[in-house]
Design a protein around this nucleic acid. Structure first.
Ligand SMILES: [Mn+2]
Ligand SMILES: [Mn+2]
Ligand SMILES: [Zn+2]
Ligand SMILES: [Zn+2]
Lengths: 128, 128
DNA sequence: ATGCCGAATGATAATCACTATCACTATCAT
DNA sequence: ATGATAGTGATAGTGATTATCATTCGGCAT
């Protein structure tokens, strides 16, 4: 049903080429830089389709969605509220506690999102 | 600086009267039902001001912000992707693991958000 | 090769939650 | 009373995302 078209392949390649957390505009702009100009609506649809197929991962921030490579182990994110940088972490104990909590109330987990907001190491040091 | 005006008091009372997780429209509509008509922009500003002062709590869902009473202990949320219901849970071990993760990388936590998505007990039972 | 059909594309309009603007008003301190 | 400060509400604007729609593409059966 969902096709991996030339445009979607270009989007996928771009995302797989780095560790960034991309929003739709990031992707459209980066592609244009390479001479591949894809309509912004197609970028949105492509990102959704690729995430749907599990070829990329998505995280929902307050304002916008961001996408990243799917070939990394599951992880959650630390987000600096000052510079916007995104760090990753993996804490299996937290994951299993989530499962425990869900199991206790008969809730079937399909996904989760853990975001830690605050100041990254650099920004903390620059605080007055 | 921030005043607790009649409008904001009405919003606060409304929220404190139940365990719901309200969005701006919910609040505006419920107030209108009681004959208290407050401009939607004022509702948005009032909710932001009340959350700012710690008089109510806010959670950021994918699409919109929701607000709830602040007189409950800190908790996170289980969100049913089928019926939209929101359950609450408190897991101190997760909280301290978050602190540990942040401390390990010199990150200063200002806040966090943990959302577990899936099927609530009821919706799980109704699955085919 | 030709024609068909479902899906994709891209320009653009629409949506939706939220914020900014602005003229006016309420509140408070002197 | 006077002025400073903040709030109100109607409405316009913003920004991310989605819907619309005419056109095009990519197989696949003939
Ligand atoms: Mn990541
Ligand atoms: Mn809650
Ligand atoms: Zn930072
Ligand atoms: Zn449910």
């Amino acid at each position: 049903m969902q096709k991996l078209t030339a445009q979607r392949q270009a989007i996928l390649d771009m995302i797989n080429r780095s560790d960034k957390h991309w929003d739709a505009d990031d992707v459209a702009y980066a592609l244009k830089e390479e001479g591949i100009s894809i309509g912004i609506a197609t970028v949105y649809r492509g990102l959704a389709a690729l995430a749907d197929q599990g070829l990329i991962e998505s995280i929902q921030l307050a304002d916008k969605k961001r996408y990243e490579r799917a070939d990394k182990a599951h992880h959650d994110h630390l987000i600096c509220t000052r510079c916007g940088s995104i760090e990753e972490f993996c804490e299996p104990e937290i994951e299993s506690l989530q499962d425990k909590v869900a199991a206790e109330r008969g809730f079937k987990i399909e996904g989760h999102q853990l975001l830690l907001f605050g100041l990254c190491k650099t920004c903390k040091a620059e605080e007055s």
